[in-house]
Design a protein around this nucleic acid. Structure first.
Length: 116
DNA sequence: CATCTGACCTAGT
DNA sequence: AACTAGGCCAGAT
């Protein structure tokens, strides 16, 4: 069979991730697993983080600071530039962050599966 | 070419 | 309820 066995609805993973993250409204946050699942790759949550790491400097800019882990912790803050800490950007949009953790994570959680 | 790590998640104990 | 271990996919060394 010469036909492409993988008929995945997924185009380029990075591009899809950027699109979803860009769709996150201000004052809201989402999780890597939610984005990955939205793309049909619930097990690719790790890839999402790696892709977001690459999202620095891309156009249009991707609000990677709106993406946190399942627990609402800013695990990616360590990879953020010191000039733009993740917690500061979130608070600037209305998200309350305490000790690197999002307060009322469920309240500010934005599900791409439901909203997108 | 083989091995390890990584912005994670799920499941088992 | 909390902790540990394994799985997942891809890039880097």
């Amino acid at each position: 069979m010469t036909e492409p066995k993988s008929t995945k609805p997924n185009r380029d993973f990075p591009e899809e991730v950027f699109d979803v993250v860009r769709a996150i409204p201000p004052g809201r946050v989402t999780s890597y697993g939610a984005v990955a699942k939205c793309l049909g790759a619930a097990r690719a949550s790790r890839r999402v983080g790696w892709i977001l790491n690459k999202s620095f400097g891309v156009t249009p800019p991707v609000p990677a600071h709106r993406v946190v882990n399942r627990q609402g912790m800013l695990t990616g803050a360590i990879h953020f530039p010191a000039d733009r800490p993740m917690d500061v950007m979130l608070e600037a949009e209305g998200v309350v962050v305490k000790d690197g953790c999002v307060v009322d994570f469920e309240a500010v959680f934005w599900d791409p599966l439901s909203e997108l």
